[in-house]
């Protein structure tokens, strides 16, 4: 790290340093012929409060406008900017540069297992297809109540963890089983099924369990905990998967 020597530093001043971003670039050929991805390095002047996303912005806005990535909220809410930073899936907007090893280039790659469209942008459609398949909406029978569907605090607590998902795909694209052929439903779909299966107001639990009791469903999970480690929302993803497995076993016997 090359700290900029502007001694004496003023009290409360944010330290500033230079970092190298090593970004995996991919640009498909106009003619559709295959292109090879390659690494580009960028030097960026950053502050202690800057995140990887800020560094990517600097590159895009001041050095190379062709660098392509998704971001929307820039505050860890929308789930647009999951990427592989130093080999781990994180949100660029929630990863402070100062928390990484800035003495070495910081590698930034697209998340794995989904088709890359350009640079850090992947085709999320297979991911959302699995999400849609588990029916991520309230399923009820009978007449609509005239007031809210009441639920006790304990009943709400049962699935609180899995309500926090922002569908960033960090978990699914960190899973080695998903990498192989992309057929596995993936942790995110199971997390979002869990959110309804364990909701006392929902009546579609059995259907969702049936959907996930698939050759490509929960039983492909090998409990590697990559998903739990990747989740930027701190959801205990592997635990949620195990709870869905247990619900299936109790249903089967």
């Amino acid at each position: 790290m090359t700290a900029v020597a502007e001694a004496p530093a003023k009290v409360g001043e944010v330290p500033s340093f230079e970092v190298t971003l090593k970004v995996l670039r991919y640009l498909p050929d106009e003619s559709g012929s295959p292109t090879v991805a390659h690494w580009d390095e960028f030097r960026v002047q950053a502050h202690g409060t800057d995140r990887v996303l800020d560094a990517l912005h600097q590159v895009k806005w001041q050095q190379d406008g062709s660098l392509t990535f998704r971001r929307s909220c820039a505050h860890g809410v929308c789930g647009s900017d999951a990427m592989r930073i130093n080999g781990r899936n994180r949100l660029a907007c929630k990863t402070l540069l100062k928390d990484l090893d800035i003495s070495k280039p910081i590698t930034v790659e697209p998340i794995k297992g989904l088709p890359v469209i350009k640079d850090l942008v992947v085709d999320m459609e297979p991911f959302f297809a699995s999400y849609r398949e588990i029916m991520p909406f309230l399923i009820t029978t009978g007449n609509e109540p005239t007031k809210e569907r009441l639920q006790s605090a304990t009943q709400r607590e049962r699935f609180d963890d899995t309500t926090k998902c922002i569908l960033c795909a960090a978990c699914t694209s960190s899973c080695p089983v998903f990498w192989t052929d992309g057929q596995y439903f993936g942790p995110a779909a199971i997390v979002n099924a869990h959110r309804f299966i364990f909701d006392s107001r929902d009546e579609g639990g059995a259907q969702r369990l049936e959907i996930l009791n698939d050759k490509e469903g929960v039983w492909r999970c090998r409990t590697t905990f990559n998903c739990t480690e990747a989740c930027p929302r701190g959801i205990e993803v592997t635990k949620a998967i195990q709870e869905v497995k247990r619900a299936m076993i109790t249903r089967a016997f």
Binding site: Q183, E210, I211, N213, D214, K215, E216, G217, W219, R220, K245, M248, I249, A252
Partner: peptide, 13 residues
Amino acid sequence: RRTTRGNTELYGW
């Protein structure tokens, strides 16, 4: 990609 639901993998597990 055919539906491959059923208890087979459950019993395997």
